[in-house]
Each structure stands twice: as structure tokens, then as C-alpha cells.
Simulated assay, not measured.
Amino acid sequence: MNDDKLLEEFESYLKALNRSPKTIRSYVCNSVRFITWLHARDIESVLNVSWQDFQRYQRWLAKQNQYSPASIDIYLRAVRALFKYLENHNILHGNPAEVLPLPKLPKVLPRNVLTEREVEDLLNAPDRQTDEGMLYKAIFALAYNSGLRISDVLNIKVNDIDTAGGRLFIRQGKGSKDAVLPIGDNCKLWIRAYRDIVRPKLVAKSKKPSDRFFLGAMRGNPINEHVLQRKIKEYALKAGIKKPVRFHSLRHAFATHLLNNDADILHVKDMLRHERLETTQRYTHVTISDLKKEHRRYHPRERDE
């Protein structure tokens, strides 16, 4: 079996696992990158790769100045996924990539986290007298209420929202995991208003009915990632927020604000759907303004006379 055929079957395998389109593109493209590197060194097939070849590839990536440790991590994870597929389907006996070490990534704290007031201003920025404003009010409110990823929002279907029970069902989220998240009373008001008043109008605009919950205001088609990222930046600008804002900013704010208000970190971990507690602990940081206040309050040379 040639490498092109292997890649086709690898892509089908990822789709069968319900991996997101973004993950599939990343794994396939970065597997192609590895195979191209092999061919340039007269290694005709991935089936002929040795452990030493993986070491050489890793060293080569590290020497390329344009690749950050995070990028190298992504490239190597794709290769490991490819060889796991080859082993699981008995195309290879043994997996030489299984112990391929990944680069140690620096711990990066979330930056430019929105304050509670800034989130409030952002949620109030959409014009609730318009269908589009009600749509984005509902989206932003739900994302902040439940700490959602943008992919979660895009994939919510009508039957995934239970306003009576205050529950949101996430189907096949990141890592192909299902989850049930709470919907607060305030958020339920905006979800119901969008569902009962606005969404029927958007459905009437669409030429192709969809069971996706959030539909675009112009044509009633399922909303997409590009539009969401553009709209949240527009509304952040309207709200007078000076920080850079992207859709994930609401998830960062959700986690930070819960922990700042003494929520149990294990409960926050579950709501964020993190595998490791260490990932959630990134949000236990304090702001520099908090540090300055404490320094001014307690340092013997700074206390008021």
C-alpha cells in the first residue's frame, strides 16, 4: 500500500472517531509534512521508518527557526496518531513512534483576561431590539455561562438545550467527549428569547433547514467560526474594551471569575472538561493590580503612615 492510500485511510479513520474537521486537517497535513521529509531523504514509505528516523525528524524540526515548541508538539502528535492507526490496523507490527518524546512546553498563563465588568459590557453590546442583537446576546451569554469553546457553540443542536431543566448537552466535544453543563437562570432568559422569537424567523430565511441551534442572522444558515470571531471583536470594540478579544476570551473569563469567587477548582475542572487539574490551575493566577494592592497594603515601606 502506498503512502497516498495510507493517508486516505488514515483520514477516514479519524472521521470514524468523530474527530473535529480542524483536528483531521491538522493530523493529515502534518502527516504529509513528515512523509515529504521522508521522501526527500530517500525513505520511500512510512512503513520503512525506524526509531532513528524519528529522532532525526525531531532534531530537524528543532533546528528550523520558524517552528515554535508548540508547533513541533502538534507536528509530532500527528505523526504519533498516524503510527497508532497503522499499528491498530495491523499495517505495522509494533509502533516505533509510541515513545517519541514531545517537546517540553512553557507554562503560559491566560493573558488579557476580561474583568467581570468588561464581560458585562460585552454582553450588553448587542442591540436587543434586533434579531441579530438577540442572536449574539444569546451566544455570548451561553458561552460565558458554561465556559464553552467556539466548536461547542457551532455544534449545539436544538435538542441539546433543556431550558426547563437548566442543562446543556455537549455531544462529541473536544476529544470526542460528551458532557452535561448547567445553564443559569439569567442565561435561560436569553436562550428562550432567541429560541422562541428569533430562531423561527431565521429558519424561515434558510433554503436548507438545519437542526443547529444558532443560525446566521442574514440567511438563516448554521453560523460559522469566522463570523463568530469577527462579531465578538466588533461587539468588544462597541463596548469600549481595549484588550484583544477573541471568542475563547469568554471561556478564560468564565474560569477566572469562578475561581476568583471561590468556586471549587475540581468543579471548575469538570465544567471546563479538562483532563488534568494542572490545566485548570492556570486560571488561579492573580492580576498584577491585585499584587500591587497587596504589596501596598502589607509592605512595611508602603503602608500608609
Rank of each mutant, 00 (worst) to 15 (best):
F247D: 04
S45E: 07
A239K: 05
L168E: 03
I35N: 11
E278D: 15
A193F: 01
I35D: 09
N2Y: 09
K188R: 15
Q229P: 03
K84H: 14
E44K: 12
Q172C: 04
L215E: 08
Q66F: 13
D185Y: 05
A78G: 11
I91R: 15
R276K: 14
L266N: 12
A70G: 01
T279Q: 06
R230I: 00
A263T: 08
A217W: 09
K231D: 04
S68W: 07
H89N: 15
V113L: 10
L228T: 03
T256K: 11
L38S: 05
G216E: 05
L154W: 08
D270Q: 14
F247Q: 06
N2T: 12
N124T: 01
P106F: 12
N155M: 03
Q52F: 13
R230G: 12
M134E: 03
C29E: 15
K242W: 00
I191S: 02
S31T: 15
D264Q: 08
I232D: 00
V268Q: 00
L17S: 06
Q52T: 12
R273L: 04
E132L: 06
R219W: 11
V108N: 14
I24W: 10
A217P: 06
P182F: 07
S12D: 13
H248M: 04
P200A: 04
I74S: 11
K104S: 14
A193N: 11
A97H: 11
A141S: 15
N88P: 04
S31P: 12
H285G: 05
R303Y: 04
R33A: 10
S31I: 10
I43F: 08
I183Q: 04
E234Q: 14
I72W: 01
K201Q: 13
E44Y: 02
D73H: 15
R297K: 15
E118D: 11
V99Y: 14
K205G: 06
Y235Q: 04
D178N: 15
R212D: 04
L250Y: 04
K205A: 07
A236W: 02
M134K: 13
R59S: 14
N224G: 10
N155P: 00
R56P: 01
L228P: 02
I24G: 06
P96Y: 09
K233V: 09
A253I: 08
A141M: 11
A255S: 07
Y85I: 00
R41W: 09
R41C: 08
N186P: 00
I150T: 01
I74T: 14
L47T: 13
I288S: 13
R192T: 01
N18T: 03
E234L: 13
Q58H: 09
V180N: 05
A239Q: 07
S68L: 08
P182W: 05
I223G: 05
E234S: 12
F10G: 09
H274Q: 09
I139G: 07
N186G: 10
P69D: 10
R276H: 15
R296K: 14
L135W: 05
D211G: 02
K177W: 11
Q172T: 09
V49I: 14
F213W: 06
E305L: 11
R303P: 07
R199N: 05
D264M: 04
F254S: 02
L6R: 13
S31C: 12
W60I: 00
E44Q: 13
R56G: 02
L86T: 08
P209C: 02
L122F: 05
M271Q: 12
Y136I: 01
K243N: 07
I183R: 04
E87T: 12
L47F: 10
A236R: 03
I232V: 08
F10P: 10
E294W: 05
K201F: 05
L82V: 10
